[in-house]
Design a binder for these strands. Structure first.
Lengths: 241, 241
DNA sequence: CGAGAACTGTGTACGCAATAAGCGATTACG
DNA sequence: CGTAATCGCTTATTGCGTACACAGTTCTCG
Protein backbone atom coordinates (compact mmCIF):
# COMPACT_ATOMS: atom_id res chain seq x y z
CA UNK A 1 0.00 0.00 0.00
CA UNK A 2 1.45 3.20 -1.20
CA UNK A 3 5.05 2.05 -0.99
CA UNK A 4 5.46 1.09 -4.58
CA UNK A 5 7.92 3.91 -5.11
CA UNK A 6 10.60 1.94 -3.33
CA UNK A 7 9.82 -1.37 -4.89
CA UNK A 8 12.53 -1.03 -7.49
CA UNK A 9 15.11 0.54 -5.30
CA UNK A 10 17.98 -0.98 -3.40
CA UNK A 11 18.76 1.26 -0.46
CA UNK A 12 21.60 -0.94 0.72
CA UNK A 13 23.33 -0.60 -2.63
CA UNK A 14 22.78 3.14 -2.62
CA UNK A 15 24.31 3.44 0.81
CA UNK A 16 27.30 1.37 -0.15
CA UNK A 17 27.89 3.65 -3.12
CA UNK A 18 27.25 6.74 -1.05
CA UNK A 19 29.87 5.80 1.50
CA UNK A 20 32.33 4.39 -0.99
CA UNK A 21 32.14 0.92 0.39
CA UNK A 22 32.50 -1.16 -2.73
CA UNK A 23 35.96 -2.67 -2.95
CA UNK A 24 37.44 -1.76 -6.30
CA UNK A 25 38.07 -4.60 -8.73
CA UNK A 26 41.46 -6.23 -9.04
CA UNK A 27 41.33 -7.79 -12.47
CA UNK A 28 39.75 -6.84 -15.72
CA UNK A 29 40.13 -3.85 -18.02
CA UNK A 30 40.55 -0.37 -16.62
CA UNK A 31 37.17 1.19 -16.10
CA UNK A 32 36.68 4.12 -18.44
CA UNK A 33 34.11 5.65 -16.13
CA UNK A 34 33.57 6.12 -12.43
CA UNK A 35 30.57 6.57 -10.22
CA UNK A 36 31.68 10.10 -9.62
CA UNK A 37 31.85 11.00 -13.30
CA UNK A 38 28.44 9.49 -13.84
CA UNK A 39 26.90 11.44 -10.98
CA UNK A 40 28.54 14.63 -12.23
CA UNK A 41 27.07 14.18 -15.67
CA UNK A 42 23.67 13.45 -14.22
CA UNK A 43 23.85 16.59 -12.12
CA UNK A 44 24.86 18.62 -15.15
CA UNK A 45 21.90 17.36 -17.11
CA UNK A 46 19.48 18.02 -14.28
CA UNK A 47 20.90 21.51 -13.85
CA UNK A 48 20.82 22.39 -17.50
CA UNK A 49 17.72 20.68 -18.79
CA UNK A 50 15.72 19.69 -15.75
CA UNK A 51 14.90 16.41 -14.11
CA UNK A 52 12.71 15.28 -16.97
CA UNK A 53 15.66 15.29 -19.30
CA UNK A 54 17.57 12.97 -17.03
CA UNK A 55 17.56 9.48 -18.44
CA UNK A 56 20.09 6.71 -18.50
CA UNK A 57 20.47 7.39 -22.18
CA UNK A 58 21.08 11.10 -21.78
CA UNK A 59 23.69 10.50 -19.10
CA UNK A 60 25.41 7.88 -21.18
CA UNK A 61 25.33 10.07 -24.26
CA UNK A 62 26.95 12.91 -22.38
CA UNK A 63 29.73 10.58 -21.31
CA UNK A 64 30.13 9.12 -24.78
CA UNK A 65 29.29 5.55 -23.83
CA UNK A 66 26.37 3.22 -24.34
CA UNK A 67 23.46 3.27 -21.98
CA UNK A 68 24.24 -0.13 -20.60
CA UNK A 69 27.76 0.82 -19.65
CA UNK A 70 26.31 2.80 -16.76
CA UNK A 71 24.91 -0.34 -15.22
CA UNK A 72 28.44 -1.55 -14.56
CA UNK A 73 28.77 1.25 -12.03
CA UNK A 74 25.30 1.90 -10.74
CA UNK A 75 22.53 -0.64 -10.10
CA UNK A 76 19.85 1.47 -11.74
CA UNK A 77 18.31 4.87 -12.10
CA UNK A 78 16.80 4.93 -8.63
CA UNK A 79 20.20 4.51 -7.05
CA UNK A 80 21.71 7.10 -9.34
CA UNK A 81 19.11 9.53 -8.12
CA UNK A 82 20.02 8.71 -4.54
CA UNK A 83 23.61 9.57 -5.29
CA UNK A 84 22.62 12.78 -7.03
CA UNK A 85 20.53 13.93 -4.13
CA UNK A 86 23.41 13.59 -1.74
CA UNK A 87 25.93 15.09 -4.12
CA UNK A 88 23.70 18.01 -5.03
CA UNK A 89 24.44 19.84 -1.84
CA UNK A 90 27.75 21.54 -1.34
CA UNK A 91 29.76 21.16 1.83
CA UNK A 92 27.87 21.98 4.99
CA UNK A 93 28.54 25.43 6.41
CA UNK A 94 30.79 25.64 9.42
CA UNK A 95 28.43 27.21 11.83
CA UNK A 96 30.60 27.07 14.92
CA UNK A 97 32.55 30.07 13.76
CA UNK A 98 29.48 32.28 13.78
CA UNK A 99 29.25 34.50 16.83
CA UNK A 100 26.15 35.22 18.84
CA UNK A 101 24.81 31.90 19.99
CA UNK A 102 22.29 29.54 18.51
CA UNK A 103 20.11 32.05 16.76
CA UNK A 104 22.53 33.65 14.32
CA UNK A 105 24.08 30.26 13.71
CA UNK A 106 20.78 28.71 12.78
CA UNK A 107 20.08 31.68 10.61
CA UNK A 108 23.29 31.24 8.71
CA UNK A 109 22.59 27.56 8.33
CA UNK A 110 19.08 28.11 7.03
CA UNK A 111 20.23 30.66 4.50
CA UNK A 112 22.96 28.40 3.26
CA UNK A 113 20.49 25.56 2.91
CA UNK A 114 18.11 27.83 1.10
CA UNK A 115 20.84 28.81 -1.32
CA UNK A 116 21.47 25.18 -2.17
CA UNK A 117 17.84 24.58 -2.96
CA UNK A 118 17.70 27.67 -5.10
CA UNK A 119 20.76 26.58 -6.95
CA UNK A 120 19.22 23.26 -7.89
CA UNK A 121 15.47 23.65 -8.13
CA UNK A 122 15.00 20.07 -9.26
CA UNK A 123 16.00 18.89 -5.82
CA UNK A 124 12.53 19.56 -4.53
CA UNK A 125 11.03 17.20 -7.07
CA UNK A 126 13.78 14.63 -6.66
CA UNK A 127 13.46 14.37 -2.92
CA UNK A 128 9.72 14.70 -2.88
CA UNK A 129 9.37 11.30 -4.47
CA UNK A 130 11.71 9.16 -2.43
CA UNK A 131 12.59 8.61 1.15
CA UNK A 132 15.72 10.45 2.12
CA UNK A 133 18.85 8.35 2.30
CA UNK A 134 21.63 9.18 4.73
CA UNK A 135 24.61 10.18 2.64
CA UNK A 136 27.75 11.87 3.88
CA UNK A 137 26.81 15.34 2.68
CA UNK A 138 23.32 15.06 4.01
CA UNK A 139 24.57 14.02 7.40
CA UNK A 140 27.09 16.83 7.49
CA UNK A 141 24.31 19.36 6.99
CA UNK A 142 22.18 17.79 9.66
CA UNK A 143 25.11 17.69 12.01
CA UNK A 144 25.80 21.33 11.39
CA UNK A 145 22.25 22.34 12.22
CA UNK A 146 22.10 20.19 15.32
CA UNK A 147 25.36 21.68 16.52
CA UNK A 148 23.76 25.10 16.43
CA UNK A 149 20.59 23.83 18.06
CA UNK A 150 22.39 22.15 20.89
CA UNK A 151 23.19 25.55 22.31
CA UNK A 152 19.56 26.21 22.95
CA UNK A 153 19.73 23.81 25.85
CA UNK A 154 16.44 22.35 24.74
CA UNK A 155 15.79 18.63 25.13
CA UNK A 156 17.15 16.66 22.21
CA UNK A 157 13.71 15.72 21.04
CA UNK A 158 12.82 19.37 20.69
CA UNK A 159 16.07 20.16 18.95
CA UNK A 160 15.22 17.55 16.38
CA UNK A 161 11.70 18.86 15.99
CA UNK A 162 12.99 22.38 15.55
CA UNK A 163 15.37 21.17 12.92
CA UNK A 164 12.57 19.51 10.99
CA UNK A 165 10.56 22.68 11.22
CA UNK A 166 13.35 24.72 9.75
CA UNK A 167 13.99 22.34 6.88
CA UNK A 168 10.30 22.22 6.17
CA UNK A 169 10.24 25.96 5.77
CA UNK A 170 13.21 26.04 3.44
CA UNK A 171 11.92 23.20 1.31
CA UNK A 172 8.40 24.55 1.26
CA UNK A 173 9.60 27.88 0.04
CA UNK A 174 11.84 26.28 -2.53
CA UNK A 175 8.89 24.44 -3.94
CA UNK A 176 6.75 27.52 -3.88
CA UNK A 177 9.27 29.50 -5.87
CA UNK A 178 10.68 26.69 -7.97
CA UNK A 179 9.51 28.14 -11.26
CA UNK A 180 9.12 31.75 -10.37
CA UNK A 181 11.98 32.99 -12.44
CA UNK A 182 10.90 31.02 -15.44
CA UNK A 183 9.39 32.48 -18.53
CA UNK A 184 6.11 30.68 -17.97
CA UNK A 185 5.40 33.00 -15.11
CA UNK A 186 3.51 35.48 -17.19
CA UNK A 187 1.12 33.03 -18.71
CA UNK A 188 0.54 31.67 -15.26
CA UNK A 189 -0.35 35.02 -13.83
CA UNK A 190 -2.65 35.72 -16.73
CA UNK A 191 -4.48 32.44 -16.27
CA UNK A 192 -4.77 32.90 -12.54
CA UNK A 193 -6.09 36.41 -12.95
CA UNK A 194 -8.64 35.04 -15.39
CA UNK A 195 -9.84 32.38 -12.98
CA UNK A 196 -9.98 35.08 -10.43
CA UNK A 197 -12.18 37.39 -12.41
CA UNK A 198 -14.60 34.54 -12.95
CA UNK A 199 -14.82 32.97 -9.52
CA UNK A 200 -13.24 35.35 -7.07
CA UNK A 201 -16.50 36.24 -5.42
CA UNK A 202 -16.71 32.82 -3.85
CA UNK A 203 -13.60 33.43 -1.78
CA UNK A 204 -14.00 36.58 0.26
CA UNK A 205 -10.90 36.35 2.42
CA UNK A 206 -8.75 35.62 -0.56
CA UNK A 207 -10.30 38.49 -2.47
CA UNK A 208 -9.52 40.86 0.36
CA UNK A 209 -5.98 39.59 0.61
CA UNK A 210 -5.35 40.02 -3.08
CA UNK A 211 -6.84 43.46 -3.03
CA UNK A 212 -4.54 44.22 -0.13
CA UNK A 213 -1.52 43.16 -2.13
CA UNK A 214 -0.83 39.96 -0.26
CA UNK A 215 0.30 38.21 -3.41
CA UNK A 216 2.24 41.04 -4.92
CA UNK A 217 5.92 40.35 -5.30
CA UNK A 218 7.86 41.83 -2.46
CA UNK A 219 11.44 42.97 -2.14
CA UNK A 220 13.82 41.15 0.15
CA UNK A 221 14.53 37.51 0.66
CA UNK A 222 11.29 35.52 0.87
CA UNK A 223 12.96 33.24 3.37
CA UNK A 224 13.18 35.96 5.99
CA UNK A 225 9.66 36.15 7.28
CA UNK A 226 9.28 32.49 8.09
CA UNK A 227 12.79 32.21 9.38
CA UNK A 228 12.24 35.00 11.87
CA UNK A 229 8.90 33.61 12.95
CA UNK A 230 10.32 30.16 13.53
CA UNK A 231 13.31 31.44 15.46
CA UNK A 232 11.03 33.69 17.49
CA UNK A 233 8.93 30.67 18.30
CA UNK A 234 11.95 28.67 19.34
CA UNK A 235 13.20 31.59 21.40
CA UNK A 236 9.93 31.66 23.29
CA UNK A 237 10.46 28.02 24.10
CA UNK A 238 14.07 28.52 25.13
CA UNK A 239 13.27 31.39 27.46
CA UNK A 240 10.38 29.56 29.01
CA UNK A 241 12.59 26.52 29.61
CA UNK B 1 16.49 25.74 -18.16
CA UNK B 2 14.84 23.66 -15.54
CA UNK B 3 11.34 24.20 -16.72
CA UNK B 4 10.99 21.12 -18.79
CA UNK B 5 8.52 19.66 -16.37
CA UNK B 6 5.81 21.91 -17.71
CA UNK B 7 6.70 21.56 -21.31
CA UNK B 8 4.05 18.94 -21.93
CA UNK B 9 1.37 20.46 -19.82
CA UNK B 10 -1.51 22.67 -20.76
CA UNK B 11 -2.43 24.73 -17.71
CA UNK B 12 -5.24 26.48 -19.52
CA UNK B 13 -6.86 23.16 -20.29
CA UNK B 14 -6.42 22.00 -16.73
CA UNK B 15 -8.05 25.12 -15.43
CA UNK B 16 -10.97 24.80 -17.80
CA UNK B 17 -11.51 21.27 -16.59
CA UNK B 18 -11.02 22.26 -12.97
CA UNK B 19 -13.67 24.91 -13.12
CA UNK B 20 -16.03 22.96 -15.33
CA UNK B 21 -15.79 25.39 -18.18
CA UNK B 22 -16.00 23.08 -21.16
CA UNK B 23 -19.39 23.28 -22.81
CA UNK B 24 -20.81 19.77 -23.11
CA UNK B 25 -21.30 18.35 -26.57
CA UNK B 26 -24.62 18.54 -28.34
CA UNK B 27 -24.39 15.76 -30.89
CA UNK B 28 -22.70 12.44 -31.00
CA UNK B 29 -23.07 9.27 -28.94
CA UNK B 30 -23.62 9.47 -25.22
CA UNK B 31 -20.33 9.57 -23.39
CA UNK B 32 -19.83 6.46 -21.33
CA UNK B 33 -17.39 8.19 -19.04
CA UNK B 34 -16.98 11.54 -17.40
CA UNK B 35 -14.05 13.55 -16.17
CA UNK B 36 -15.27 12.99 -12.66
CA UNK B 37 -15.35 9.22 -12.98
CA UNK B 38 -11.87 9.24 -14.46
CA UNK B 39 -10.49 11.36 -11.67
CA UNK B 40 -12.18 9.14 -9.10
CA UNK B 41 -10.59 6.05 -10.55
CA UNK B 42 -7.23 7.71 -10.68
CA UNK B 43 -7.54 8.70 -7.04
CA UNK B 44 -8.51 5.18 -6.09
CA UNK B 45 -5.47 3.76 -7.82
CA UNK B 46 -3.13 6.27 -6.22
CA UNK B 47 -4.65 5.55 -2.82
CA UNK B 48 -4.49 1.83 -3.12
CA UNK B 49 -1.31 1.20 -5.06
CA UNK B 50 0.63 4.42 -4.96
CA UNK B 51 1.49 7.04 -7.55
CA UNK B 52 3.79 4.73 -9.47
CA UNK B 53 0.89 2.45 -10.26
CA UNK B 54 -1.01 5.31 -11.81
CA UNK B 55 -0.89 5.09 -15.57
CA UNK B 56 -3.35 5.86 -18.29
CA UNK B 57 -3.65 2.14 -18.83
CA UNK B 58 -4.38 1.35 -15.20
CA UNK B 59 -7.01 4.03 -15.01
CA UNK B 60 -8.62 2.85 -18.22
CA UNK B 61 -8.52 -0.77 -17.09
CA UNK B 62 -10.25 0.10 -13.86
CA UNK B 63 -12.99 1.81 -15.82
CA UNK B 64 -13.30 -1.04 -18.30
CA UNK B 65 -12.35 0.98 -21.38
CA UNK B 66 -9.32 1.26 -23.60
CA UNK B 67 -6.52 3.59 -22.77
CA UNK B 68 -7.28 5.93 -25.61
CA UNK B 69 -10.83 6.45 -24.52
CA UNK B 70 -9.54 8.62 -21.69
CA UNK B 71 -8.11 11.10 -24.14
CA UNK B 72 -11.60 12.09 -25.20
CA UNK B 73 -12.08 13.55 -21.73
CA UNK B 74 -8.65 14.63 -20.58
CA UNK B 75 -5.84 16.08 -22.69
CA UNK B 76 -3.16 13.94 -21.10
CA UNK B 77 -1.71 12.56 -17.96
CA UNK B 78 -0.30 15.86 -16.73
CA UNK B 79 -3.73 17.41 -16.76
CA UNK B 80 -5.24 14.38 -15.08
CA UNK B 81 -2.73 14.84 -12.29
CA UNK B 82 -3.74 18.47 -11.98
CA UNK B 83 -7.32 17.40 -11.52
CA UNK B 84 -6.35 14.75 -9.01
CA UNK B 85 -4.40 17.17 -6.90
CA UNK B 86 -7.31 19.51 -6.58
CA UNK B 87 -9.79 16.72 -5.99
CA UNK B 88 -7.63 14.98 -3.43
CA UNK B 89 -8.49 17.42 -0.72
CA UNK B 90 -11.83 17.26 1.00
CA UNK B 91 -13.93 20.36 1.58
CA UNK B 92 -12.12 23.13 3.40
CA UNK B 93 -12.89 23.37 7.11
CA UNK B 94 -15.23 26.12 8.19
CA UNK B 95 -12.96 27.96 10.51
CA UNK B 96 -15.21 30.89 11.28
CA UNK B 97 -17.20 28.81 13.74
CA UNK B 98 -14.16 28.18 15.93
CA UNK B 99 -14.05 30.36 19.00
CA UNK B 100 -11.01 32.10 20.40
CA UNK B 101 -9.62 34.26 17.63
CA UNK B 102 -7.03 33.64 15.00
CA UNK B 103 -4.84 31.24 16.88
CA UNK B 104 -7.23 28.38 17.56
CA UNK B 105 -8.70 28.85 14.12
CA UNK B 106 -5.37 28.51 12.42
CA UNK B 107 -4.66 25.51 14.57
CA UNK B 108 -7.83 23.80 13.47
CA UNK B 109 -7.04 24.62 9.89
CA UNK B 110 -3.52 23.27 10.09
CA UNK B 111 -4.65 20.04 11.70
CA UNK B 112 -7.30 19.53 9.06
CA UNK B 113 -4.77 20.15 6.34
CA UNK B 114 -2.39 17.74 7.98
CA UNK B 115 -5.08 15.10 8.06
CA UNK B 116 -5.61 15.45 4.35
CA UNK B 117 -1.95 14.94 3.64
CA UNK B 118 -1.81 11.94 5.90
CA UNK B 119 -4.81 10.48 4.18
CA UNK B 120 -3.17 10.68 0.76
CA UNK B 121 0.59 10.38 1.18
CA UNK B 122 1.15 10.45 -2.56
CA UNK B 123 0.09 14.09 -2.61
CA UNK B 124 3.52 15.15 -1.48
CA UNK B 125 5.12 13.52 -4.48
CA UNK B 126 2.42 14.67 -6.87
CA UNK B 127 2.64 18.32 -5.93
CA UNK B 128 6.40 18.32 -5.50
CA UNK B 129 6.83 17.91 -9.22
CA UNK B 130 4.49 20.50 -10.64
CA UNK B 131 3.52 24.02 -10.04
CA UNK B 132 0.33 24.28 -8.09
CA UNK B 133 -2.76 25.08 -10.10
CA UNK B 134 -5.62 27.06 -8.63
CA UNK B 135 -8.57 24.70 -8.44
CA UNK B 136 -11.77 25.29 -6.55
CA UNK B 137 -10.87 23.06 -3.62
CA UNK B 138 -7.42 24.49 -3.36
CA UNK B 139 -8.74 28.01 -3.31
CA UNK B 140 -11.31 27.15 -0.69
CA UNK B 141 -8.58 25.92 1.63
CA UNK B 142 -6.48 28.99 1.05
CA UNK B 143 -9.47 31.20 1.62
CA UNK B 144 -10.21 29.46 4.86
CA UNK B 145 -6.70 29.97 6.18
CA UNK B 146 -6.59 33.60 5.12
CA UNK B 147 -9.89 34.20 6.83
CA UNK B 148 -8.36 33.07 10.10
CA UNK B 149 -5.21 35.07 9.50
CA UNK B 150 -7.06 38.26 8.73
CA UNK B 151 -7.95 38.52 12.39
CA UNK B 152 -4.35 38.98 13.32
CA UNK B 153 -4.54 42.48 11.96
CA UNK B 154 -1.21 41.94 10.29
CA UNK B 155 -0.48 43.50 6.90
CA UNK B 156 -1.74 41.32 4.10
CA UNK B 157 1.74 40.58 2.91
CA UNK B 158 2.57 39.09 6.27
CA UNK B 159 -0.64 37.15 6.39
CA UNK B 160 0.31 35.56 3.14
CA UNK B 161 3.82 34.82 4.33
CA UNK B 162 2.48 33.26 7.51
CA UNK B 163 0.18 31.11 5.45
CA UNK B 164 3.07 29.85 3.36
CA UNK B 165 5.01 29.10 6.49
CA UNK B 166 2.21 27.02 7.89
CA UNK B 167 1.70 25.03 4.72
CA UNK B 168 5.40 24.47 4.49
CA UNK B 169 5.40 22.90 7.89
CA UNK B 170 2.49 20.62 7.15
CA UNK B 171 3.91 19.53 3.83
CA UNK B 172 7.38 19.09 5.18
CA UNK B 173 6.15 16.85 7.92
CA UNK B 174 4.01 14.90 5.53
CA UNK B 175 7.03 14.19 3.43
CA UNK B 176 9.12 13.31 6.42
CA UNK B 177 6.59 10.77 7.60
CA UNK B 178 5.31 9.62 4.24
CA UNK B 179 6.58 6.09 4.56
CA UNK B 180 6.88 5.80 8.28
CA UNK B 181 4.04 3.39 8.71
CA UNK B 182 5.24 1.21 5.89
CA UNK B 183 6.78 -2.17 6.31
CA UNK B 184 10.08 -1.02 4.87
CA UNK B 185 10.70 0.96 8.02
CA UNK B 186 12.59 -1.78 9.75
CA UNK B 187 15.09 -2.38 6.99
CA UNK B 188 15.57 1.34 6.81
CA UNK B 189 16.37 1.64 10.47
CA UNK B 190 18.72 -1.28 10.27
CA UNK B 191 20.62 0.23 7.37
CA UNK B 192 20.77 3.63 9.00
CA UNK B 193 22.05 2.14 12.24
CA UNK B 194 24.68 0.34 10.25
CA UNK B 195 25.86 3.49 8.51
CA UNK B 196 25.88 5.03 11.89
CA UNK B 197 28.10 2.48 13.52
CA UNK B 198 30.57 2.93 10.70
CA UNK B 199 30.75 6.68 10.31
CA UNK B 200 29.03 8.21 13.30
CA UNK B 201 32.23 9.57 14.76
CA UNK B 202 32.48 12.13 12.00
CA UNK B 203 29.28 13.82 13.15
CA UNK B 204 29.59 14.77 16.81
CA UNK B 205 26.42 16.84 17.19
CA UNK B 206 24.37 14.21 15.49
CA UNK B 207 25.90 11.52 17.63
CA UNK B 208 25.03 13.42 20.78
CA UNK B 209 21.49 13.99 19.55
CA UNK B 210 20.96 10.36 18.76
CA UNK B 211 22.37 9.31 22.09
CA UNK B 212 20.00 11.78 23.69
CA UNK B 213 17.05 10.15 21.97
CA UNK B 214 16.37 12.95 19.50
CA UNK B 215 15.34 10.51 16.81
CA UNK B 216 13.39 8.14 18.97
CA UNK B 217 9.72 7.93 18.09
CA UNK B 218 7.68 10.11 20.38
CA UNK B 219 4.08 9.98 21.46
CA UNK B 220 1.72 12.71 20.43
CA UNK B 221 1.03 14.33 17.11
CA UNK B 222 4.29 15.23 15.38
CA UNK B 223 2.59 18.29 13.97
CA UNK B 224 2.26 19.90 17.37
CA UNK B 225 5.75 21.13 18.03
CA UNK B 226 6.17 23.06 14.82
CA UNK B 227 2.64 24.31 14.88
CA UNK B 228 3.08 25.81 18.33
CA UNK B 229 6.42 27.32 17.43
CA UNK B 230 5.04 28.94 14.32
CA UNK B 231 2.00 30.31 16.05
CA UNK B 232 4.17 31.57 18.89
CA UNK B 233 6.31 33.32 16.35
CA UNK B 234 3.31 34.88 14.68
CA UNK B 235 1.95 35.89 18.07
CA UNK B 236 5.16 37.73 18.83
CA UNK B 237 4.68 39.65 15.62
CA UNK B 238 1.04 40.41 16.35
CA UNK B 239 1.71 41.71 19.83
CA UNK B 240 4.58 43.79 18.66
CA UNK B 241 2.09 45.21 16.17
C1' DC C 1 54.28 -18.70 -19.05
C1' DG C 2 49.65 -20.05 -19.94
C1' DA C 3 44.81 -20.82 -18.39
C1' DG C 4 40.93 -19.27 -16.55
C1' DA C 5 38.55 -16.02 -13.60
C1' DA C 6 37.03 -11.38 -13.05
C1' DC C 7 35.82 -7.53 -15.19
C1' DT C 8 35.07 -4.28 -19.10
C1' DG C 9 31.94 -1.92 -22.83
C1' DT C 10 28.51 -3.27 -26.29
C1' DG C 11 24.44 -5.00 -29.15
C1' DT C 12 20.13 -6.78 -29.04
C1' DA C 13 15.66 -7.29 -27.25
C1' DC C 14 11.65 -7.00 -24.19
C1' DG C 15 7.98 -4.71 -21.87
C1' DC C 16 5.66 -0.68 -20.41
C1' DA C 17 4.25 3.94 -20.83
C1' DA C 18 2.31 8.15 -23.25
C1' DT C 19 0.02 9.48 -27.09
C1' DA C 20 -0.76 10.64 -32.34
C1' DA C 21 -3.77 9.24 -36.31
C1' DG C 22 -7.42 7.37 -38.39
C1' DC C 23 -11.74 4.13 -38.44
C1' DG C 24 -16.52 2.91 -38.08
C1' DA C 25 -20.56 3.66 -35.26
C1' DT C 26 -23.81 6.87 -33.03
C1' DT C 27 -26.70 10.82 -32.48
C1' DA C 28 -28.72 15.59 -32.70
C1' DC C 29 -29.65 19.49 -35.75
C1' DG C 30 -31.00 21.53 -40.06
C1' DC D 1 -32.74 12.32 -44.06
C1' DG D 2 -28.20 13.69 -44.46
C1' DT D 3 -24.34 15.55 -42.39
C1' DA D 4 -21.34 17.08 -38.92
C1' DA D 5 -19.91 16.25 -34.37
C1' DT D 6 -18.54 13.00 -31.19
C1' DC D 7 -18.04 8.52 -29.34
C1' DG D 8 -14.79 4.22 -28.24
C1' DC D 9 -11.50 1.48 -30.48
C1' DT D 10 -7.38 -0.30 -33.26
C1' DT D 11 -2.92 0.47 -34.71
C1' DA D 12 1.59 2.51 -34.64
C1' DT D 13 5.31 5.51 -32.91
C1' DT D 14 8.52 6.96 -29.63
C1' DG D 15 11.25 6.86 -25.52
C1' DC D 16 12.31 4.75 -21.48
C1' DG D 17 14.58 1.22 -17.97
C1' DT D 18 16.90 -2.78 -17.93
C1' DA D 19 17.80 -8.16 -18.57
C1' DC D 20 21.03 -11.01 -21.03
C1' DA D 21 24.71 -12.74 -23.52
C1' DC D 22 28.98 -11.79 -26.04
C1' DA D 23 33.76 -10.45 -27.04
C1' DG D 24 37.70 -8.24 -25.59
C1' DT D 25 41.00 -7.09 -21.53
C1' DT D 26 43.70 -7.74 -17.47
C1' DC D 27 45.06 -9.91 -13.30
C1' DT D 28 46.14 -14.22 -10.49
C1' DC D 29 47.51 -18.70 -9.86
C1' DG D 30 49.53 -22.98 -11.11
Amino acid sequence: MARSRDEKRDPAASLALLWGEQGQPKRGPKPSLSVERIVDSALAIADEEGLDALSMQSVAARLGVTTMALYRYVPGKAELLDLMVDAAFGPAPDVTSVAGGWRPRLEVWARACWQEYRRRPWMVAATGMRRQLMGPRQLAWIDSALAALSETGLPYAQQHAAFLLLVGHVRGLAQQLADDDAEGREEWDRLTADVWARHGDRFPALTAAIAGGAFAPRPGDPLDFGLERILDGVAVLVERG
